[in-house]
C-alpha cells in the first residue's frame, strides 16, 4: 500500500545518489513504522483525530472556548505540532537507531536527519488529506492561498531537522535528554497557539510567540488553510529567518560535536 503510493514519486526523482538515499531511508522508515499494510496507515490517522476529539471536548464544552469551526481550528494546528513533536523525538535517537549504518559506512550523516523528518512528513500528508475531507464536509472551501501551504511545511521541516540535529548531539553526552525534551514538548504544546488564538498571546506576552519557532508557522498555516487568507508576511519572514538560523546552528553543532557518536552510544 505505502509502496504503491510512494512508487510513482520515485520515478520523478532526478538520478542523484544523495536525494535517492534520503528518499529510500525515509520510505523504509515510514514503512517500518506503519507495518506496511492497509491497517497500519490507519494508526497514522487515528492518533491525531483522537487527540482532536479530546481537545475539542475539553475546550469547547468544559472551558467553553468560542471559536468558529473549532474542530478545524484545532486540527490544522495539531497536525503541525504533532509533526514537530514526533520528528524531534525520533531525531533525538536517530544516531542510535541508524547505528548499523554509521558504524560501517562513511557517508554524510546529515542525510539521516533529512530522511527521518521526511518520513514523518509522509504521515503529516495523510493527516492533511483527512483535514481536507473534514473541511469540505464542514463547508469550508479553500482559496488560492492554500497554495502557500508548502512554504509552512518546508519551514516546519527545517525547524524539525534543526532540533533533531541538536538533540541527537546532546543525546550522545546526556542520555536522559529525552525526558527533558518530553517536558519541553509538553510546555510547548500549551504555549503554542494550538487551541487558543495567537493574537491574544501576541498582545500580552509577545516573547512567548516569538521565542517558539512553531508559533509563527502554525498561525500562518491556519491562515492559508482555514481562513483562506494570505499569510502574515512579517511573521512569515520572521519564521523563515528563525528557521534558517536554527538550521545553521544545528548543523554547526552536529558537525562539531557528534564525532564521538559511535564511541559513546
Amino acid at each position: 500500500m505505502i509502496n504503491t503510493i510512494l512508487k510513482p514519486f520515485e520515478k520523478h526523482l532526478p538520478e542523484n545518489n544523495r536525494l535517492e538515499r534520503i528518499w529510500k531511508l525515509a520510505q523504509v522508515d515510514f514503512k517500518k513504522r506503519y507495518y506496511n499494510d492497509y491497517f497500519g496507515l490507519v494508526w497514522a490517522l487515528i492518533n491525531p483525530l483522537f487527540r482532536m476529539a479530546i481537545y475539542y471536548f475539553v475546550f469547547s464544552f468544559i472551558f467553553s472556548q468560542k471559536i468558529e469551526n473549532y474542530h478545524l481550528y484545532l486540527f490544522s494546528a495539531l497536525i503541525f505540532w504533532m509533526y514537530f513533536a514526533e520528528s524531534t523525538k525520533r531525531g533525538l535517537s536517530t544516531l542510535l537507531t541508524k547505528r548499523y549504518l554509521i558504524e560501517n559506512i562513511v557517508f554524510n550523516r546529515l542525510d539521516l536527519f533529512y530522511s527521518l523528518s521526511l518520513s514523518v512528513i509522509f504521515g503529516l500528508l495523510f493527516n492533511l488529506v483527512a483535514y481536507v475531507g473534514m473541511s469540505l464536509i464542514t463547508g469550508i472551501y479553500f482559496t488560492w492561498s492554500v497554495l502557500l501551504l508548502p512554504i509552512m511545511l518546508f519551514l516546519a521541516y527545517i525547524v524539525s531537522v534543526s532540533f533533531g540535529l541538536i538533540l541527537s548531539t546532546l543525546n550522545i553526552y546526556f542520555k536522559d535528554i529525552m525526558h527533558l525534551w518530553d517536558m519541553v514538548l509538553l510546555a510547548g504544546f500549551w504555549i503554542t497557539p494550538i487551541f487558543f488564538r495567537g493574537e491574544e498571546i501576541l498582545s500580552r506576552a509577545p516573547i512567548l510567540l516569538y521565542a517558539n519557532p512553531m508559533s509563527g508557522i502554525i498561525i500562518n498555516a491556519r491562515k492559508v488553510l482555514l481562513f483562506g487568507e494570505l499569510p502574515d508576511w512579517n511573521l512569515l519572514l520572521f519564521s523563515s529567518v528563525y528557521a534558517l538560523v536554527l538550521f545553521l546552528v544545528g548543523r554547526f553543532f552536529f558537525l562539531k560535536y557528534s564525532h564521538k557518536a559511535v564511541e559513546k552510544l
Binding site: N16, E20, R21, K24, L25, V28, F107
Partner: peptide
C-alpha cells in the same frame, strides 16, 4: 536492519554506499 527485508536492506545499504537506483 533486522526488521527490513533483504530487498530493502540492499537498497538502503546500496544508496548509502553511493549507488543510484
Amino acid at each position: 536492519d533486522n526488521t527490513l527485508t533483504a530487498r530493502d536492506n540492499i537498497y538502503v545499504n546500496g544508496t548509502v554506499l553511493g549507488l543510484t537506483f
